[in-house]
Amino acid sequence: MRRALAARGAGAGRSTGRAGHGYPGPARSLLNRMAMRQNYWSLGAFCATCCRLLATHHLLEDEAMFRKLRTADRDLSPILQRLEEEHELIVGLITCLDQKLVRMIEFNVHKAADL
């Protein structure tokens, strides 16, 4: 954050040449971009944690629980098959979400760089 402020000359004060007497717009814009960067990082960290937990949950079901249930009761096979298909669908949805989040962040990073 300090490097970003230093690189921009803190924004405020530059328009008049006197520190503390400039327009706050550039500094506020910089602070907003830094806040958005933090929000993107937080969203990414939250999403990654949820996805890891979901992947672990599904792995345990697919590799252990579903096998044991099939062995214990063959009548559960159609239900377990459907759950496995849903797991595959969810992987596709998570991949799509991840791609959209990356595009959103890239777009906003490029947009902020143009300011």
Rank of each mutant, 00 (worst) to 15 (best):
R74H: 08
L69K: 00
L115T: 13
L43P: 01
L31E: 05
L97W: 12
L115H: 15
E86H: 04
A45S: 06
L53H: 13
C51F: 08
R33G: 03
H21V: 08
L97N: 05
G44V: 01
A19W: 13
G9V: 06
L83F: 07
L93I: 05
F46E: 13
V91H: 09
L115P: 10
T95Y: 04
H87N: 11
K111Q: 15
V91W: 02
A27I: 01
F107R: 14
D114M: 15
Y23D: 12
A113P: 07
R74L: 09
D62Y: 06
Y40C: 14
R74G: 05
V109F: 09
A113T: 14
R14Y: 06
G20R: 06
A35M: 07
G92L: 04
E86T: 02
G17A: 15
R82A: 05
E88G: 11
N108K: 07
K68T: 00
W41V: 09
L31Y: 08
H87M: 04
S15I: 05
A6L: 09
M36W: 02
S77E: 12
H87D: 04
R28Q: 13
D114E: 15
C47F: 13
R82L: 05
M65N: 01
L43V: 15
A113C: 15
C96P: 00
S29G: 13
S42D: 12
Q99V: 06
G92E: 06
A12C: 11
R14N: 14
H110D: 15
S77P: 00
G17M: 10
L5P: 00
E63Y: 00
N32G: 10
Y23V: 14
E61M: 06
S29R: 13
E63I: 02
M1S: 14
I79C: 06
V109T: 15
M1Y: 07
Q38E: 14
G22E: 10
I79T: 11
R8P: 00
P78K: 03
E63K: 10
T16C: 04
G13V: 09
E88V: 11
R82E: 03
L31F: 07
Y40K: 05
A27W: 02
L43Y: 09
A27P: 01
S42L: 14
H21Y: 09
G92F: 05
V91F: 04
A27G: 09
L97S: 08
H58P: 04
S29I: 09
T49I: 02
P78Y: 02
F46D: 10
Y40N: 07
S42M: 11
M36G: 00
D75I: 01
A45D: 03
G44E: 09
R67L: 03
Y23A: 13
R33E: 13
I94G: 00
M34H: 04
I94C: 04
L76E: 00
L60D: 07
E61I: 01
L59I: 03
D98R: 08
V91N: 02
E85V: 02
T95M: 02
L80R: 04
R8V: 05
H58G: 03
A64Y: 01
F66C: 00
L93M: 14
L30I: 07
E88L: 12
R28D: 04
V102W: 03
E61G: 01
A12R: 10
T49M: 12
E84A: 09
F66M: 02
R52M: 10
S42H: 11
E106L: 12
Y40M: 11
A35P: 02
A112H: 11
N32S: 12
